[in-house]
Write a protein that binds this DNA or RNA. Sequence first.
DNA 1: GTCTATACCTGGATAGAC
DNA 2: GTCTATCCAGGTATAGAC
Lengths: 199, 199
Amino acid sequence: MSKLATREKIVEAADALFYEQGYEHTSFADIAKTVAISRGNFYYHFKSKDEILDAVIDVRLANTQLMLDGWEVEGSSPAERIRNFIYILKTNQDKIKRYGCPVGTLFSELAKLNHSAQEDSRSIFSLFRSWLTQQFTLLGCEEEADELAMHLLARSQGVATMANAFPDEAFLDQEVAQMCAWLEIYVARGKSKQAKRQT
Amino acid sequence: MSKLATREKIVEAADALFYEQGYEHTSFADIAKTVAISRGNFYYHFKSKDEILDAVIDVRLANTQLMLDGWEVEGSSPAERIRNFIYILKTNQDKIKRYGCPVGTLFSELAKLNHSAQEDSRSIFSLFRSWLTQQFTLLGCEEEADELAMHLLARSQGVATMANAFPDEAFLDQEVAQMCAWLEIYVARGKSKQAKRQT
DNA sequence: GTCTATACCTGGATAGAC
DNA sequence: GTCTATCCAGGTATAGAC
């Protein structure tokens, strides 16, 4: 098998396992089993377990960027794009109910481990944060855009955590609906500002 | 040293370390160092590491109950009591910024480990949930009381997670203020209902 | 590139002296 | 009750054959 293909398979398997079992709790043996390679083979592709984590975070960053870029389709409005963000909870609800949010739970774990990759994992949050800030700015809420971005991120994180703790509920749907309703306040506010500017 | 005193010291040290470092990442050696006993001595007091975790969860449950009971002081209103809950974030902000919420992060970790104590740790959430539900009911929002309780829990969890990821911000204060403002809607709604009943 | 064998360590847990 | 000594499983990491 080519070098790249195996490396990619390792990262892919590690990505899933780190999400489902946590970073520390996932052993080389676990990854080796799903990729079907020997434990020794890892060290041809990576110097250490930490390097696998770095690669996983890089992949998550890249995939997140791709997702955000994918929402910038022709004719889409910032409100629609923010709604896409809110709907991540709905789209991934099964996994979220089982494992929580991949971004939040990884960051929490690395924070407790005092791991050197903690800052890298925070940058996934930063990616969402700056993107949301941009969308709220486009919506016409420039002064409070970052505050609104952080608020929405926090709401999502909270819903993910509680949906993980109480997965048997209509809770997630309710909260998604409420977040969309909350967004409408700022959509309306942005429109009235635009109207003022045009007069 | 008396049996009880040592046992309590172990639980106390484990409680703090599980919060700061995570359950799995905390070793007997870590606890032994802070309590200043030998590793072998643990097994006089506990059969296994899992039993220490059980004891820690029991202590947290008891302390939470004590805190909630302490808020039922003479003349206090349900609104004030809910505000006390919101203010936990402010009171514990230093630790939250460093380690997140002790309830949420423990549950998340145990969920990933697929640990048998997962349900016990969820019961700490349940304690808050049922208490909040009761307070919202007293406030006059009986139909939606549990929904409001879950909403407030989720907001707190989200704020704790994001304050952990971005601790350098005025973010936590803003969110606490917004949660208090949000509460006022339901305080007002409850009052108008009461007024109707009295006519 | 991938394997097997193995070194080395840390973690939880046990046995038995004191 | 607390200690020391020790066991054993499992983890990361290395060496070297293929």
